[in-house]
């Protein structure tokens, strides 16, 4: 059950993110309402239900996180695999990973998103903003995965069973599919699951700093930033998205934590 809770949460929130009507429910007669029986999370400056907006924002954050996770791992695995067969790549790979490691992830994503968005006519389109976020997060997060995959493959390379497969006529594709991929698959599953909270946080910080999607598709970081502007008078604007972000991070990490306690 503990392992399934994060999965159910992700599915529910991602499903909720497709509710397009939420952002258009503007009602000037109910602006800045405090949390109550009719609106559990209160309302924002345009009279929209804040709890619904926050849940939808959380779903969008998760969606961005899932897409970037898939792209990151595909890139990392493919490039790591290719680099492991290129003998002269040692110093190059170490340098690239060093440089990527020396810049905070958030800054790299910011740089990539600026560089990518220069190619678009305007980033006001939701799809374009979504793609830019996904691609830039993936571009900044692939090097550690490539490094690990490369090391694993290099460790496997001299093994007898692999030599036997080559002698028996196994193609490189067969080798990659049946031996290398199987060897790294448990690590990939575990590492991907542990990266989800981290990716959500990166996405939230990006939205917070203005790199995210526009206000119609506001994610949690954007809602927190918007709420902070009026936090002195209407604290619920800031508290509701913050609590939801904390809860999501807590549930995701709780579901993945090992039950064995250190003390």
């Amino acid at each position: 059950m503990r392992k399934l809770t994060p999965l159910f949460l992700i599915m529910a929130l991602v499903g909720f993110s497709f509710q397009h009507t939420i952002s258009s429910q503007i009602d000037p007669s109910r602006i800045f309402l405090s949390p109550g029986a009719s609106f559990w999370g209160g309302t924002d400056s345009l009279g929209r239900d804040l709890l619904q907006r926050s849940l939808r924002g959380a779903g969008l954050s998760l969606l961005i996180c899932l897409f970037s996770l898939i792209l990151t791992y595909v890139m990392g695995m493919v490039l790591g695999g290719v680099l492991s067969f290129w003998k002269r790549a040692n110093h190059l790979v170490i340098f690239i990973v060093d440089v990527f490691d020396s810049i905070p992830n958030f800054l790299l994503v910011a740089l990539f998103s600026i560089l990518i968005s220069r190619g678009f006519v305007a980033t006001s389109s939701a799809n374009a903003a979504f793609s830019i976020l996904v691609i830039s997060i993936a571009l900044s997060a692939w090097p550690p995965i490539a490094r690990y995959v490369r090391l694993e493959i290099l460790q496997l390379k001299g093994k007898d069973f692999l030599n036997a497969t080559i002698v028996l006529g196994g193609s490189p594709f067969y080798l990659a599919r049946t031996h290398y991929l199987r060897a790294i698959w448990p690590w990939v599953k575990l590492s991907a699951a542990h990266s989800i909270p981290q990716f959500i946080l990166i996405e939230s910080v990006l939205s917070f700093t203005g790199f995210g999607m526009n206000s119609d598709y506001a994610t949690l970081g954007y809602l927190i930033f918007e709420g902070w502007k009026n936090a002195l008078i209407y604290p619920h604007l800031f508290v509701v998205p913050s609590v939801i972000l904390c809860l999501i991070i807590w549930i995701l990490t709780w579901g993945l934590q090992e039950t064995k306690e250190l003390f």
Binding site: S204, I224, P235, C246, I249, F263
Partner: peptide, 26 residues
């Protein structure tokens, strides 16, 4: 009392900076 300290730090680590910093400033 390291168990209590660790529980405190574990709880603290669950709160993202994005939420913790505004709350402390507030």
């Amino acid at each position: 009392n390291r168990r209590h300290f660790l529980l405190f730090f574990r709880g603290l680590n669950q709160i993202p900076q994005l939420v913790l910093i505004p709350v402390v400033i507030y």
